[in-house]
Nucleic acid binder design. Structure first.
Lengths: 253, 253
DNA sequence: CAGTGGTCTAGACCACGGT
DNA sequence: CCGTGGTCTAGACCACTGA
């Protein structure tokens, strides 16, 4: 029952009470909450109010609603750990393997499909690749799947002049991938920089990645620089935040 | 006006239309959307339906509602770039300076307050610090402000046996901070690892960090290891995702 | 004070899932 | 088929903002 004299909105009181019961383990991960009509009885408020309360918990990522079934406490997702600062040449030999081999080891059927296109650099691309706006860039649009489920989106961009006549403009870049082809073309990688942020997904991303309400995406922009400091490639990645954790490591000195 | 025959829910049609106008620049960042009552007229649906539509945009982080004033297109926040892999001894001399000096350079009045307490390690802490569950740990709870606004929460934990009798157990750790005191006590830092993720804030975090609906938090757990690989300190940081970007850099080889 | 968003009700009908 | 969540209405009153 809610306290109408407290000044706290009814739907927040209900949300707080349910949240408390979830955190206390009364509703364990994976279990179903009482139906909305039952909650109407229990708390003595109308259904829209109950729905407001449940929506609070949904946007906090605590529960998910399944049409026709009920509202369930969201179990913690299987987290994929991505170790960075491991893109050494040796590791790169195994190529995209990072993703594919990793998944294979876990018994997943992983796949990845690529579309190649060309476009002209907008402000952001021009700035990161240190070119003029409008410069032609090669774009590799990549969708990664595990068990048929899309788990990661990646868009890689390079100045067209670095890729012309190489397999980087093909769907299959060959052994060693993009970085190996760049190196063959005389552009060896000097260092990497990754910019990491997070935000709520766009509707397109949410449906592509099958993200439900209350789960943000982690955005990673990796820039590969040549040995002379020229930016060679930028890679924009979008990951569902509930399925990934990124790890970075560096020496203290 | 909404199309009731399309099968797409009315509130989603309204949300999509408003989103399109925002992205097209018809409603520029910072400007006010038409009032809910005006939207009721414009789209020919009831107010709760309009509110559902606006709520979609709110949880996407596109707009913010201000009671008594209106709904506004959220302007991009001033982004603070945090460069990692820069915790070298030289840089550490400047101490917490990273945060304080940075803010000062931007004309902020920055401050940071610390509470010290002791607790026993739970599962997660025990695992990261490689100790038994229940081991006594020193906890430094830190709140960082810029212009009076809380911008970052950080909780640092160390095995009590490493800090006993040192200034690490004081509010003011002295010049060079925690790491300098650890080093004096014979525990030099060998390397750092950071684990980065994102999620929606808890209600407490949301109000402390003054985050509004639709903005996730970035979580960073930094672990400092000794030269022999012993974990010395773990630092859990929580940052509003719309105000921070993390950058990591490493050589290709 | 008028205009804004915030909360809430008491219904109604629809779409989906599982029996 | 029944129970579930999903959508929607037509109001009502409150709390906040700014002129």
């Amino acid at each position: 029952m809610v306290d109408k004299t407290s000044g706290v909105p009814a739907f927040r009181q209900v949300a707080a009470d349910l949240r408390g019961r979830i955190e206390a383990g009364e509703y364990a991960p994976g279990t179903k909450l009482p139906s909305e009509r039952e909650l109407v009885e229990a708390y003595g408020v109308s259904r829209p109010t109950i729905r407001d309360a449940v929506n609070v918990l949904r946007s906090e990522g605590l529960v998910t609603a399944e049409h026709g079934r009920g509202v369930f406490v969201r179990p913690p997702a299987m987290i994929q750990r991505l170790s960075r600062s491991r893109l050494s040449r040796a590791a790169r030999e195994r190529d995209q393997g990072a993703f594919l081999a990793d998944a294979a080891a876990k018994g997943f059927t992983a796949s990845s499909s690529v579309k190649v296109r060309f476009e002209s650099a907008d402000d952001r691309v021009a700035e990161t690749l240190a070119v003029d706006v409008g410069t032609e860039v090669t774009v590799r649009d990549r969708v990664m799947r595990a068990n048929g489920l899309i788990v990661q989106l990646a868009v890689s961009r390079l100045r067209r002049e670095f890729t012309r006549g190489t397999a980087v403009e093909e769907v299959d870049t060959g052994p060693g991938g993009t970085y190996a082809r760049l190196e063959e073309a005389g552009y060896a990688i000097g260092h990497f920089v990754e910019h990491v942020g997070a935000r709520m997904p766009s509707p397109e991303e949410a449906s592509a990645l099958q993200i439900d309400q209350g789960v943000p995406v982690v955005t990673v922009t990796r820039v590969a620089y040549g040995e002379d400091g020229t930016p060679l490639e930028m890679n924009d990645m979008v990951l569902p935040a509930d399925r990934y954790e990124l790890s970075y490591e560096w020496p203290a000195e």
